[in-house]
Structure formats: structure tokens, C-alpha cells
Design a protein around this nucleic acid. Structure first.
Lengths: 250, 250
DNA sequence: CGCTCCCTTGACTCGACTCAAAGCAGGTGG
DNA sequence: CCACCTGCTTTGAGTCGAGTCAAGGGAGCG
């Protein structure tokens, strides 16, 4: 039974055995990347999406003709990478492995066939990307309405939450990101991120031990980050009523 | 034949007659709203999505416990409203009619059934929401990396482009938005939007005649707005190869 | 007539950016 | 083993864009 890597498909319902098998057969290939290796560079032709099996991946955009970067999303195991660009001829995102990484390669035509063969999975993926869209909206609201401290805290808490899902998490974060990248994610400059981290340290919210960040007061950090909390549906009848048996013909 | 209101479904391929009929039968109801009327308020139970038939609709979030608003998206005829919240128990977006508006009400369970009955339409909708996601990413990048002038210009050009699609458009925009709303969209304050519009006027890029904005130099405005230009796929084989005949049983 | 929005303008503040220089690894090759 | 990169972090000084607060002016409406 696959567990972590298909969490995107388990978030709203539990897939049947046949569906899990179908998912497993989507991949055409499996690839590994080293830290900082490029998975996809913006401008390249779009042919695949990727299921992240292990490792962290950053998704970013060049802005200002390359002078700056916008880090749009930090991906964790179970995430599907590259979806936003499937309607384009050239990829918009640059995907870079932040840690050593394993991905399944899923050709777009197989993804398309999922809509015919496994509609329940397709709708689940659809729901999951709507959630992503919402997170982007929250990110957008945050970037234009919150202070540097809040944005940095929000980033830390986001990572903390995701890691908690895997149980891999204590109050210690080993961020594989430079301050420059944190800045790109939060919409700040590296200089200012540095100062902001300093402020958080002085406020006894975090401390750093080498590259590692220790979260000293998670409650206050959560409060600072001020994520809107949104409750997701689980097993809604309109989802579970869709045909459960995918058509596995030919 | 329905034309404008289903453009979201025609962007990537041409739906078959049966598919168009299916789309038409999705709605459970049709509603009309007056200017400033609320279609959906954040926090309400999620039961439907809406197909915008005519009029403009703003989608916004309260931030800072209601002191500020983030206007996330301006919707035009053909857009599907409310999708980002379908995975939630309570809506995240507040949808407000910016002009007199007509919408089709689509219960979520019917949307779900589309994934079973009309997979090609479902995948088309999926593609279209991936595009939305991308636009949000661009919006995000813009908000953190561009000046007030650029953001206001970007908003104007966005509206101009959308209107051009309907052929309704000259170089004259009749924005049904207050400067406060423009500010909410651009991530600015109303005071600063006012000054920024002043700058654009002094630079002979726009002029205002009452509530109407006349675009004096669209080329320079486009340059200022600096949208990334992204080419969408049309009729990709992996889309058109999906079963064209929806199952219309029972 | 007076209300309520909304736009407009001015004066002041401040958070985040820029530019710049200096410290600090970690890694590579001589 | 040391010398030298190169990339990342840290700190300082100065600037500026956008926000805040506040007051006045129009325009539409009951």
C-alpha cells in the first residue's frame, strides 16, 4: 500500500485498491535529483507532470527579467509538480530540488486518461488543486497585507505544519534554503530577511544552531503567522458517489 | 448554441453538441443580482458553484479581521465562480456583483457527476483552473515585485484584455469599481491609488471623463503592466483523444 | 436640505530596499 | 595542510515608496 506519496489523493477520500493500482501505473519513469538540480526550467516544453516521492522542491518564477525570483511554492512528498503549466506550451515554473529528491514522471496524456478511466481520482485531484488555488490566494493576501515578521513566521509555520503530517517533526527545522530563497518566498530582500530573523531571535521566538532553526514558541509563532484556518471536507457524498470502479479496459 | 457563457470550456477545444447540452443541464437554477449584491459571503456553507452569464463579479477575502480586503479576482462572463472553495465546508471567498449580474447555479454534486459523465469537459475545466492558478502566481509575483504604477496599469490592462475578448472594447473603460476596490485588488491603499492614477494622467497614459477611464497609450500601458505572455495549448491530442461522447445514461 | 459615499490633497512617518563592506564557512586544488 | 575561491550571512548608513491621519470638496440621493 502506497501511503505518503499519494496523500494528495487520500485527503478527501480513501482510494480503492484498484484506484491505487491505477495511480501506480500512471508513471512512465522514475527520476532522482541532487540538491539544487533543475527538474524543469521555465520556457521548456511541457510534456509531464511529476509526483514527488521524497525530498523538497521549490517552484519559482523569474521576475524583472531574471533579476529577482518569486518562490511560489514549497513542495513536499505527495505533491504533484508541474500542474499549473499543463495548459501551456512552455512551462512557467522552474522546479528545483531543494534536497535530494525522487519523483515519478507522469506524461500528460496519462493524466488525461485518468479523467476517463478513474473519474473519482480525477475529481479528487481537482479538489486538491482548488485547495492549492486557495493557498495561493491566502499567500497573495499575506504578501500585500502583512509585515516582514509575519511573513517569515508564516513560512516557518507552513513548513512546520507540512512536516508534522509526516510525523517527522519536532520543534527543529532544518531548512534547506538560503536567506535569499526565504526572501524570494516571502517577497522580501535577503538583507531584510536576515534582520527579521534577528528580530525573531531577540523576541525569543526562534533560535538558530548552525543552519538549523529551533522554534522556541510555536504558539506565538502561529499567532504571528495568522493563517486563516479552513476546514476541508472529508468523504462528501457527492464525491464518494462517483463510480468507484475505474474502467481498466484495454 | 451557447457562446460567451461557456468560453471557459471552449478555450482548449470545441465541445460537441452533446457536451454543450450537458453543460446546459448542469444548472439547477438561474439567479440575478443587483450591483453590490452579495452572491456568496465568506463563512457560508458551500453547496454550489456559479457560471457567470453576464456582468462582473469581484471575489474577495477579508484580511486583518475585516479591516482590509484583498480583491483576489475580477470575474467576467464565462467564468466559473466559487470553485476554489469547493473542497471546504465554509466558503473562503466573498463574491459580490460589481454590475447587474446573471448566474447559473450549479450544485456541486452535478459538477462531480460531470467527471463521470463528460470527462472531456471535466478535463477542460481542470485545465482552465490550472490557468487560474498560474494567473494567481503571476499576481503574487507582481504584488511583491512591482511598483504601484505598474500594478494599477496591470489591472487596467487585464480588464482591457478581457473585454477585448467580447469585442465590447474600445480604449474606454467603464470600471464599476471604487478606488478603494482598485486598491484592494492591487494591494495598495485608496489614497495611494488616487495619487497613482494622477501620475498616470500626468504621464498622458490615461485620462478620466467622469467615472470612465480612457486609455491614451495602450502600448506603453502594456509595457508598464509587463504581463508575462504565456501561450496556451489548443486542441492537444491528449485532450481530444478523451472519449467525446459523454455517457448520458438514466 | 442634509446625508453618505467617494475622490482629492497635504503633511508626516516608517518599513523595507539599496548600496556597500566585512566576516564566515565549505570546498577545491596546489 | 594551507591558500584561495565562491557563496552565504551579518551589519551599517542612507533613501524612498507607500501608508497613515486628517481635512476639505463633489456628486448623487432620499
Amino acid at each position: 500500500m502506497e501511503h505518503v506519496p499519494v496523500q494528495r489523493f487520500c485527503e478527501f477520500m480513501t482510494p480503492s485498491t484498484i484506484e491505487l493500482q491505477f495511480l501506480d501505473e500512471l508513471k512512465s519513469d522514475q527520476r532522482e535529483y541532487r540538491r539544487k538540480e533543475v527538474i524543469t526550467r521555465e520556457g521548456e516544453k511541457v510534456a509531464n507532470v511529476f509526483l514527488l516521492r521524497s525530498g523538497w522542491v521549490t517552484s519559482s518564477f523569474a521576475v524583472d527579467s531574471g533579476k529577482r525570483n518569486q518562490l511560489v511554492k514549497l513542495h513536499f512528498p505527495g505533491d504533484v509538480l508541474g500542474l499549473p503549466s499543463i495548459a501551456l506550451t512552455k512551462t512557467a515554473e522552474t522546479l528545483i530540488a531543494a534536497t535530494p529528491t525522487k519523483v515519478d514522471v507522469i506524461p500528460i496524456e496519462r493524466l488525461a486518461s485518468m479523467f476517463e478511466r478513474a473519474p473519482r481520482l480525477a475529481f479528487t485531484l481537482f479538489l486538491s488543486t482548488q485547495q492549492e488555488r486557495l493557498m495561493l490566494m491566502d499567500h497573495l493576501a499575506a504578501v500585500s497585507h502583512t509585515s516582514a515578521q509575519q511573513r517569515v513566521a508564516a513560512l516557518l509555520m507552513y513548513v512546520h505544519r507540512r512536516l508534522k503530517l509526516f510525523g517527522e517533526c519536532s520543534d527543529v527545522l532544518d531548512l534547506p534554503m538560503s536567506q535569499q530563497q526565504i526572501a524570494d518566498a516571502a517577497g522580501l530582500t535577503s538583507v531584510h530577511v536576515n534582520r527579521t530573523l534577528g528580530e525573531l531571535k531577540r523576541a525569543d521566538l526562534i533560535c538558530t544552531e548552525g543552519k538549523v532553526i529551533r522554534l522556541l514558541d510555536i504558539d506565538r509563532l502561529e499567532e504571528l503567522a495568522a493563517f486563516p484556518d479552513r476546514a476541508s471536507v472529508r468523504n462528501p457524498w457527492w464525491l464518494t458517489s462517483i463510480g468507484q470502479q475505474p474502467f481498466m479496459g484495454d
